[in-house]
Simulated assay, not measured.
Amino acid sequence: MGHVIVVGNEKGGAGKSTLSVHIAVACAISGLKVAALDLDRRQRTFERYFENRARWSATHETELPTPDFFYLSKATAERRVDAEAEETEATRTLIAAMRDSHDIVLVDAPGADTPASRAAHACADTLVSPLNDSFIDFDLLAEIDPVTGEVGKPSVYAEMVWEARKQKAASRGKPIDWVLMRNRLSPLDAKNKRRVGDALSALAQRIGFRVAPGLSERVIYREMFTAGLTLLDLTDEGAAATFTLSHVAARQELRDLILALKLPPLGEAGQLGF
Protein backbone atom coordinates (compact mmCIF):
# COMPACT_ATOMS: atom_id res chain seq x y z
CA MET A 1 0.00 0.00 0.00
CA GLY A 2 1.26 3.47 -0.87
CA HIS A 3 1.84 6.12 1.79
CA VAL A 4 -0.67 9.00 1.66
CA ILE A 5 0.63 12.50 2.37
CA VAL A 6 -1.95 15.28 2.66
CA VAL A 7 -0.67 18.84 2.68
CA GLY A 8 -3.38 20.95 4.21
CA ASN A 9 -4.75 23.62 6.44
CA GLU A 10 -7.72 25.92 5.89
CA LYS A 11 -5.88 29.15 5.23
CA GLY A 12 -4.75 30.46 1.89
CA GLY A 13 -1.23 31.74 1.37
CA ALA A 14 0.46 29.31 3.75
CA GLY A 15 2.58 27.74 0.99
CA LYS A 16 0.72 24.42 0.64
CA SER A 17 1.13 24.09 -3.13
CA THR A 18 4.82 25.06 -3.17
CA LEU A 19 5.47 22.57 -0.39
CA SER A 20 3.45 19.87 -2.17
CA VAL A 21 5.47 20.34 -5.36
CA HIS A 22 8.80 20.04 -3.57
CA ILE A 23 7.79 16.97 -1.55
CA ALA A 24 6.50 15.27 -4.70
CA VAL A 25 9.67 16.00 -6.69
CA ALA A 26 11.91 15.03 -3.75
CA CYS A 27 10.19 11.64 -3.51
CA ALA A 28 10.36 11.13 -7.29
CA ILE A 29 14.08 11.98 -7.38
CA SER A 30 14.57 9.47 -4.57
CA GLY A 31 13.25 6.69 -6.79
CA LEU A 32 9.67 6.48 -5.53
CA LYS A 33 6.62 6.23 -7.76
CA VAL A 34 4.52 9.29 -6.89
CA ALA A 35 0.85 10.02 -7.53
CA ALA A 36 -0.50 13.56 -7.19
CA LEU A 37 -3.98 15.01 -6.64
CA ASP A 38 -4.94 18.69 -6.54
CA LEU A 39 -8.21 19.15 -4.64
CA ASP A 40 -8.32 22.92 -5.15
CA ARG A 41 -10.19 22.81 -8.43
CA ARG A 42 -10.61 26.60 -8.51
CA GLN A 43 -6.99 27.82 -8.24
CA ARG A 44 -5.22 24.60 -9.36
CA THR A 45 -1.79 25.98 -8.33
CA PHE A 46 -0.33 22.52 -7.64
CA GLU A 47 -1.58 21.17 -10.95
CA ARG A 48 -0.53 24.23 -12.98
CA TYR A 49 2.97 24.05 -11.51
CA PHE A 50 3.44 20.67 -13.17
CA GLU A 51 1.79 21.86 -16.39
CA ASN A 52 4.51 24.55 -16.53
CA ARG A 53 7.07 21.84 -15.75
CA ALA A 54 5.89 19.73 -18.68
CA ARG A 55 6.11 22.70 -21.06
CA TRP A 56 9.62 23.56 -19.83
CA SER A 57 10.72 19.94 -20.31
CA ALA A 58 9.28 19.84 -23.85
CA THR A 59 10.93 23.13 -24.82
CA HIS A 60 14.34 22.09 -23.49
CA GLU A 61 13.99 18.48 -24.68
CA THR A 62 14.70 17.05 -21.25
CA GLU A 63 12.80 14.88 -18.81
CA LEU A 64 12.38 16.00 -15.21
CA PRO A 65 11.08 13.79 -12.37
CA THR A 66 7.32 14.31 -12.26
CA PRO A 67 4.46 12.58 -10.42
CA ASP A 68 1.49 10.94 -12.12
CA PHE A 69 -1.50 13.28 -11.83
CA PHE A 70 -4.99 12.05 -11.00
CA TYR A 71 -8.23 14.01 -11.19
CA LEU A 72 -11.36 13.97 -9.04
CA SER A 73 -14.57 13.88 -11.04
CA LYS A 74 -17.21 16.50 -10.28
CA ALA A 75 -20.30 15.39 -8.35
CA THR A 76 -23.40 15.02 -10.51
CA ALA A 77 -26.14 14.80 -7.86
CA GLU A 78 -28.54 17.76 -7.78
CA ARG A 79 -29.26 17.87 -4.04
CA ARG A 80 -26.44 19.33 -1.97
CA VAL A 81 -26.41 16.56 0.62
CA ASP A 82 -26.24 13.92 -2.13
CA ALA A 83 -23.50 15.82 -3.99
CA GLU A 84 -21.39 16.05 -0.81
CA ALA A 85 -21.80 12.34 -0.15
CA GLU A 86 -20.85 11.58 -3.76
CA GLU A 87 -17.75 13.80 -3.53
CA THR A 88 -16.69 12.17 -0.26
CA GLU A 89 -16.97 8.65 -1.64
CA ALA A 90 -15.28 9.59 -4.93
CA THR A 91 -12.32 11.05 -3.02
CA ARG A 92 -11.92 7.94 -0.88
CA THR A 93 -12.16 5.65 -3.91
CA LEU A 94 -9.66 7.67 -5.95
CA ILE A 95 -7.07 7.84 -3.15
CA ALA A 96 -7.43 4.09 -2.57
CA ALA A 97 -6.75 3.46 -6.27
CA MET A 98 -3.73 5.79 -6.22
CA ARG A 99 -2.18 4.08 -3.20
CA ASP A 100 -2.64 0.68 -4.82
CA SER A 101 -0.35 1.65 -7.71
CA HIS A 102 2.13 4.13 -6.21
CA ASP A 103 4.64 4.37 -3.37
CA ILE A 104 3.61 7.91 -2.42
CA VAL A 105 0.23 9.62 -2.83
CA LEU A 106 0.54 13.41 -2.49
CA VAL A 107 -2.72 15.34 -2.00
CA ASP A 108 -2.75 19.14 -2.03
CA ALA A 109 -5.86 20.11 -0.04
CA PRO A 110 -7.73 23.39 -0.63
CA GLY A 111 -7.66 26.25 1.84
CA ALA A 112 -11.31 25.65 2.68
CA ASP A 113 -13.56 23.11 4.36
CA THR A 114 -14.91 20.85 1.59
CA PRO A 115 -16.20 17.25 1.55
CA ALA A 116 -13.20 16.21 -0.58
CA SER A 117 -10.75 17.83 1.82
CA ARG A 118 -12.31 16.17 4.86
CA ALA A 119 -12.28 12.79 3.11
CA ALA A 120 -8.63 13.21 2.09
CA HIS A 121 -7.60 14.14 5.62
CA ALA A 122 -9.25 10.96 6.93
CA CYS A 123 -7.18 8.94 4.40
CA ALA A 124 -3.85 10.53 5.37
CA ASP A 125 -0.94 8.57 6.78
CA THR A 126 1.03 11.80 7.13
CA LEU A 127 -0.62 15.22 7.38
CA VAL A 128 1.69 18.18 6.75
CA SER A 129 0.35 21.61 7.72
CA PRO A 130 2.51 24.59 6.71
CA LEU A 131 2.01 27.56 9.01
CA ASN A 132 3.33 31.06 8.45
CA ASP A 133 5.26 32.16 11.50
CA SER A 134 2.63 34.50 12.95
CA PHE A 135 -0.26 34.43 15.40
CA ILE A 136 -2.60 35.28 12.53
CA ASP A 137 -2.02 31.79 11.13
CA PHE A 138 -1.73 30.24 14.61
CA ASP A 139 -5.36 31.23 15.21
CA LEU A 140 -6.29 28.49 12.73
CA LEU A 141 -5.11 25.94 15.30
CA ALA A 142 -6.14 27.45 18.62
CA GLU A 143 -7.27 30.60 20.35
CA ILE A 144 -4.76 32.86 22.09
CA ASP A 145 -5.71 34.86 25.17
CA PRO A 146 -5.14 38.52 24.19
CA VAL A 147 -4.12 39.46 27.76
CA THR A 148 -2.03 36.54 29.04
CA GLY A 149 -0.95 35.08 25.70
CA GLU A 150 -1.91 31.61 26.88
CA VAL A 151 -3.12 29.00 24.40
CA GLY A 152 -6.86 28.41 24.60
CA LYS A 153 -9.21 25.89 23.06
CA PRO A 154 -8.50 24.33 19.63
CA SER A 155 -9.93 26.12 16.61
CA VAL A 156 -11.89 24.85 13.61
CA TYR A 157 -9.07 23.21 11.67
CA ALA A 158 -7.68 21.37 14.69
CA GLU A 159 -11.19 20.06 15.40
CA MET A 160 -11.53 18.89 11.79
CA VAL A 161 -8.22 17.02 12.03
CA TRP A 162 -9.40 15.42 15.27
CA GLU A 163 -12.52 14.12 13.47
CA ALA A 164 -10.35 12.85 10.59
CA ARG A 165 -8.14 11.00 13.07
CA LYS A 166 -11.15 9.31 14.61
CA GLN A 167 -12.41 8.23 11.18
CA LYS A 168 -8.96 6.93 10.21
CA ALA A 169 -8.62 4.96 13.44
CA ALA A 170 -12.08 3.44 12.99
CA SER A 171 -11.47 2.42 9.37
CA ARG A 172 -7.83 1.24 9.31
CA GLY A 173 -6.55 1.48 12.87
CA LYS A 174 -3.40 3.36 11.77
CA PRO A 175 -2.98 6.84 13.30
CA ILE A 176 -2.35 9.99 11.30
CA ASP A 177 1.10 11.47 11.85
CA TRP A 178 0.36 15.19 11.97
CA VAL A 179 3.42 17.33 11.19
CA LEU A 180 3.26 21.09 11.49
CA MET A 181 5.85 22.98 9.47
CA ARG A 182 6.79 26.55 10.39
CA ASN A 183 6.98 28.28 7.03
CA ARG A 184 8.71 31.50 5.91
CA LEU A 185 10.85 31.62 9.04
CA SER A 186 12.77 34.81 9.68
CA PRO A 187 16.54 34.40 10.10
CA LEU A 188 16.36 36.83 13.03
CA ASP A 189 15.69 35.64 16.56
CA ALA A 190 12.72 37.98 16.95
CA LYS A 191 10.47 38.09 20.00
CA ASN A 192 7.41 37.09 17.93
CA LYS A 193 9.30 34.11 16.52
CA ARG A 194 10.05 32.86 20.03
CA ARG A 195 6.48 33.45 21.21
CA VAL A 196 5.04 31.48 18.27
CA GLY A 197 7.48 28.66 18.99
CA ASP A 198 6.53 28.52 22.66
CA ALA A 199 2.82 28.51 21.82
CA LEU A 200 3.28 25.69 19.29
CA SER A 201 5.21 23.60 21.82
CA ALA A 202 2.42 24.02 24.36
CA LEU A 203 -0.30 23.19 21.82
CA ALA A 204 1.56 20.21 20.32
CA GLN A 205 1.26 18.26 23.56
CA ARG A 206 -2.45 18.96 23.81
CA ILE A 207 -3.70 18.14 20.31
CA GLY A 208 -0.99 15.77 19.11
CA PHE A 209 1.20 17.14 16.36
CA ARG A 210 4.96 17.45 16.02
CA VAL A 211 6.85 20.44 14.65
CA ALA A 212 9.23 19.91 11.72
CA PRO A 213 12.01 22.18 10.41
CA GLY A 214 10.48 24.81 8.17
CA LEU A 215 11.50 26.71 5.05
CA SER A 216 12.81 30.25 5.10
CA GLU A 217 11.32 33.08 3.09
CA ARG A 218 13.05 32.97 -0.30
CA VAL A 219 12.26 34.68 -3.59
CA ILE A 220 13.35 31.58 -5.53
CA TYR A 221 10.12 29.73 -4.68
CA ARG A 222 8.08 32.36 -6.52
CA GLU A 223 10.52 32.77 -9.39
CA MET A 224 10.54 29.09 -10.35
CA PHE A 225 6.76 28.70 -10.70
CA THR A 226 6.49 29.83 -14.32
CA ALA A 227 9.13 27.29 -15.40
CA GLY A 228 7.70 24.56 -13.19
CA LEU A 229 11.15 24.01 -11.69
CA THR A 230 12.08 23.33 -8.06
CA LEU A 231 15.16 23.78 -5.92
CA LEU A 232 16.07 20.21 -6.75
CA ASP A 233 16.30 20.97 -10.49
CA LEU A 234 18.72 23.88 -10.28
CA THR A 235 21.88 21.80 -10.53
CA ASP A 236 20.63 19.86 -13.54
CA GLU A 237 22.18 20.61 -16.90
CA GLY A 238 20.29 23.37 -18.66
CA ALA A 239 18.53 24.66 -15.54
CA ALA A 240 16.93 28.08 -15.98
CA ALA A 241 18.59 29.69 -12.93
CA THR A 242 22.06 30.14 -11.52
CA PHE A 243 22.79 27.95 -8.52
CA THR A 244 23.94 30.05 -5.53
CA LEU A 245 24.94 29.51 -1.90
CA SER A 246 21.45 30.64 -0.91
CA HIS A 247 20.05 27.75 -2.94
CA VAL A 248 22.43 25.35 -1.21
CA ALA A 249 21.00 26.45 2.14
CA ALA A 250 17.45 26.15 0.83
CA ARG A 251 18.08 22.62 -0.43
CA GLN A 252 19.41 21.64 2.98
CA GLU A 253 16.25 23.03 4.60
CA LEU A 254 14.17 20.92 2.23
CA ARG A 255 16.29 17.85 2.93
CA ASP A 256 15.87 18.34 6.68
CA LEU A 257 12.11 18.64 6.22
CA ILE A 258 11.79 15.46 4.13
CA LEU A 259 13.85 13.52 6.68
CA ALA A 260 11.68 14.90 9.49
CA LEU A 261 8.56 13.50 7.81
CA LYS A 262 9.94 9.97 8.39
CA LEU A 263 8.23 8.53 5.31
CA PRO A 264 8.26 4.69 5.43
CA PRO A 265 8.84 4.26 1.66
CA LEU A 266 12.20 6.03 2.08
CA GLY A 267 13.30 3.55 4.74
CA GLU A 268 14.44 4.20 8.29
CA ALA A 269 17.61 5.92 7.10
CA GLY A 270 15.69 8.26 4.78
CA GLN A 271 17.35 7.30 1.50
CA LEU A 272 17.11 10.57 -0.42
CA GLY A 273 18.28 11.10 -3.99
CA PHE A 274 19.48 14.66 -3.48
Rank of each mutant, 00 (worst) to 15 (best):
G8E: 06
E10V: 13
G13V: 08
S17D: 12
V25Q: 04
V25Y: 08
V34A: 05
A35V: 04
A36G: 14
R42D: 14
R42W: 13
Q43I: 06
F46G: 02
E47R: 14
Y49D: 11
L64E: 03
P65F: 05
F69Q: 02
L72T: 03
T88R: 14
R92M: 10
L94P: 08
D103Y: 07
A112G: 08
D113V: 13
L127F: 11
N132M: 10
I136K: 11
D145E: 12
K153Q: 13
V156K: 15
M160S: 09
M160N: 05
S171A: 12
D177W: 03
R182A: 01
L188N: 07
N192S: 14
N192P: 08
D198N: 15
S201F: 04
F209Q: 09
G214I: 04
I220H: 07
E223Q: 15
L231F: 03
L232N: 00
L234I: 10
E237A: 15
F243L: 10
T244F: 00
L245T: 07
S246I: 05
V248K: 12
L254R: 00
I258P: 00
I258K: 00
A260T: 00
L263V: 01
P264D: 06
P265L: 02
L266N: 04
Q271M: 09
G273M: 08
